[in-house]
């Protein structure tokens, strides 16, 4: 349809171009998008372009950066792929892009099955955000259609966590800073970098992302994560599937991209060794003590 075919051409061109010119292919791709979005960017490409909405008195930012779009998940999509129905004309029609617009491309049947958009939409409808403020919340509250870029399978755990949390922190760092709302959680900085908000704020155990629950249902039990069958296995783990065996006999090491998680990353041989050493010592001293007791009794009676 809109993108796959064109992407192939672009890729082919880029390979040729870089072979001939030894130059990066990025400018090549963006050049053609730039040209094709030119009719819109003439106005919307300006760095400052917006107006104050009379009803609300709020500034509506109408500026869109092609450079950002080139780096986003929707790179290669044209403005008119999403903004359909006469946006080439002025004044524009007053179409709103809705969740239905997203589904038009992301409908499960149309080569986008892997995103399970219908399931995501159903989960989103259950989320605390939609339940609390159905008018205010939609997909693009969290996913910037022009610049958003999610992590991909195979990214390091660090990147996954950072990108995922950034989505939530966009709003929640101003609503109430993490350090304050999560003061009960020690090593706050470390946890914020090591686990996603979603670990604790979505149903467990499951890999569901969009059914964010009310705060009262969030995970507060440390051992839920700090244990061998950690909930992280069903959550963060999905990015690690097929990434190889656990290293040097450590349980759950690959899951966390080699970082050490107290109580979760464990070595069964070392665990057994520790217990064995202590048990051996206890039985050793007990035997010695009993021996002394007997020999003393013998000494007394003789």
């Amino acid at each position: 349809m809109f993108s796959t075919k064109r992407k192939k051409h672009v890729a082919l061109g880029a390979v040729l171009a870089s072979l001939l010119l030894m130059q990066s292919d990025l400018s090549f791709a963006s050049q053609s998008d730039l040209e094709r979005n030119e009719p819109c960017l003439r106005c919307h490409g300006m760095k400052t372009f917006g107006y104050v909405k009379p009803e609300t008195g709020k500034l509506v930012n109408l500026s869109v950066s092609q450079a950002a779009l080139d780096q986003a998940d929707h790179q290669g999509n044209l403005c008119v792929d999403c903004h359909r129905g006469g946006y080439r004309k002025m004044p524009h029609p007053q179409h709103k892009v809705t969740a239905d617009t997203c589904l038009e491309c992301h409908e499960d049947e149309r080569g986008f099955e892997k995103y399970r958009m219908n399931a995501i939409t159903a989960h989103f409808k259950k989320s605390v955000h939609y339940q609390m403020q159905p008018e205010q919340f939609n997909c693009f509250s969290c996913h910037d259609p022009h610049a958003g870029r999610l992590h991909k399978m195979g990214d390091s755990t660090e990147t996954v966590v950072e990108k995922s949390n950034q989505v939530c922190l966009n709003c929640h760092s101003t609503l109430l800073p993490f350090e304050e709302s999560h003061a009960w959680l020690p090593n706050g900085q470390l946890h914020q970098k090591a686990v996603r908000c979603l670990e604790c704020h979505t149903p467990r155990p499951s890999s569901v992302v969009h059914a964010i629950e009310p705060a009262a249902k969030a995970e507060k039990d440390c051992v839920a994560c700090h244990s061998r069958d950690s909930i992280l296995l069903t959550k963060l783990n999905k990015y690690r599937l097929g990434r190889g065996e656990d290293k040097l006999g450590f349980v759950n090491s690959v899951v966390m991209d080699d970082s050490y998680v107290l109580g979760m990353t464990r070595h069964s041989a070392l665990d057994k060794l520790g217990i064995f050493a202590v048990a051996l010592t206890v039985s050793g001293v007990s035997a010695h003590g009993i021996g002394r007791w007997f020999s003393r009794r013998r000494g007394k009676s003789s």
Binding site: L248, Y260, A277, V278, H288
Partner: peptide, 28 residues
């Protein structure tokens, strides 16, 4: 080639086990 914390955690654990063994023998 492993996150630094691993080796540290393992050494800490083994030192802890060693000193526990010491503690038991010491008391006896």
């Amino acid at each position: 080639g492993m996150a630094g914390l691993w080796l540290i955690a393992v050494v800490h654990y083994l030192a802890g086990v060693g000193l526990t063994v010491f503690l038991i023998m010491h008391i006896y």
